[in-house]
Amino acid sequence: MTNVARTGQTLLIVASSMLFAAFTSAMVVRRATGTDWIAPSVPVWLWAAALLAIAASCLVAKKFYRSAALCGFALVASQIACAASLRMGDVAQSFAAVLVTAHAAHALFGACALWWKGERASLFWHFAGALWLYVLWLIGVWA
């Protein structure tokens, strides 16, 4: 990977981190200020989907980029199914839906990039995997 590509990806990661930091801070404040917060229950299979993200990162490390991308697409499908099942009228579930969907957009971008660009997208994919573990912790444990 060239220095320019690596720097570009790093900056993209910074921007994405700010987006999720903003969602997180909104979630923290909203939970503290409202009286209507009911902890969302995360489907068990969504936890299992974390394995897909980890598996994809392992495959990237082994340079099996297209296999990793397929794991990524499977992760996105599970995330979309999860987001569709959440009730937007419930504040905690709506935050979960926002975070899962926002991550799905990142994972889709990362998986497509892995499919077509291979190694050049590896840094972003590792970030997307770590970000998914964070999102799962946020909505599944903290919330």
Binding site: V14, A15, S16, M18, L19, A21, A22, A26, A102
Partner: peptide, 12 residues
């Protein structure tokens, strides 16, 4: 880089 991501979150 730091500011517009936050506005994007607010807008969403």
């Amino acid at each position: 880089l730091f500011a517009f991501a936050v506005l994007l979150a607010g807008g969403i």
